[in-house]
Write a protein that binds this DNA or RNA. Structure first.
Lengths: 199, 199
DNA sequence: GGAGTTCTTGACTGTTCGGTCCACCATAAG
DNA sequence: CTTATGGTGGACCGAACAGTCAAGAACTCC
């Protein structure tokens, strides 16, 4: 019927996400977006709307992906407590530290735009509530499995774990060396979650 | 000898800091800076250099102030453990949550500019190392006072506390309600620091 | 009061920004 | 082949940007 698109939407969104992630929203110009996507201005606008709409689309797909990964990781791990430890100790598995060094796109966006843009704040809030619920479910499972004291409130512990994880990612952003980061992650995991070394 | 300045440098820096804190670096225009400071462009440039220099000046004074406050709080509290709890539970004393809602200027700046500007990252790194050292001293004092196990590494615990505190401030930024924030802070403090209720 | 010095103000500049628009192109259906 | 449909890419626009500069104002010293 008509001329087909010459680009793959997902590839473009991925490239744009990398750009926003590296440079932030304000520091990313339309020229940057054209460069990383290989598209002209007209195509970008026709396909994704203006810069802000494109940004939100990327942000939504990012949080959806992360929640999916989190859901999967929490569900697949045989013992729930291990999944929770993994959540905190994730930086340990990344010896170069490059993964966490640029932080979390959602967190970066919240810091950059949160005060000025209520919609970003709202999205962040809902995103973290979703994460809290996912982690809370996992905490409840760990309680059923006898690895965590049954008396504790799963949501409260989930929030504490999420705060600790965000704090760690942030420390990594500032350039904390991998050894110190690993030690800090272990320290937090040991204190927030019971030791399993005796098992 | 010459015409005296009609503005107070400290007042101007305070106003400019508020602006950068609220809107971030990129979203603050020179016009904004002129408005909040009451100065013309020429005066701003003559007194503080360009936008970037002014920003760094504000950032440095912010971290200096914060380190001073931290040093004071940690030194003045009779029992070191109480100072450490205060560090984590600070959001509880701010019932409206407005204080933490806009986060920490240093953290916001790191998130916004960290990937693109090594100088910001470097400043953030040094700033958090200073905080870690201050908190570490306080942990050591708490150990001498018998409130914390002497075996633990003070710096490791200091980093864990700092990460937890940054995580809490960040959760507050996303709009977490005060009750949940308070509960999370209590939960973290209880797990990272021993309970003193039996004293 | 005059000279010298610093501060203040706002007009000005060149650049870059996000966004629009349109002429052209590639495809599929008839 | 013709025509309709949607995609493409770059020229173009007004606005906003950071930064410069010169003319005048306020002050001290002589």
């Amino acid at each position: 019927m008509a001329r087909p698109r010459t680009f793959d939407e997902k590839q473009v969104l991925d490239a744009v996400q990398e750009q926003f992630w590296d440079a932030g929203y304000a520091a990313t110009s339309l020229e940057d977006l054209m460069r990383v996507s290989g598209l002209g201005k007209g195509s970008l606008y026709a396909a994704f709307g203006d810069k802000r709409q494109l940004f939100f689309r990327v942000l939504r797909s990012y949080t959806d992906d992360r929640h999916g990964q989190l859901r999967e990781a929490l569900a697949e791990t045989p013992r729930a407590l291990d999944a929770l430890r993994m959540l905190i100790e994730a930086p340990i598995d990344d010896p170069t530290g490059t993964g966490a060094r640029r932080g979390c796109l959602m967190a970066n966006s919240t810091c950059e735009l949160g005060n000025a843009d209520p919609e970003v704040l709202d999205h962040a809030h809902r995103s973290y509530e979703t994460s809290t619920a996912l982690i809370g479910d996992c905490v409840a499972r760990a309680q059923r499995e006898g690895d965590l004291p049954a008396a504790a409130d799963p949501i409260a512990l989930a929030r504490a774990l999420l705060a600790a994880q965000q704090g760690l990612v942030f420390m990594s952003r500032t350039g904390l060396d991998t050894a110190a980061l690993t030690a800090t992650a272990r320290s937090l995991a040991d204190q927030l979650l019971p030791d399993r070394s005796g098992d």
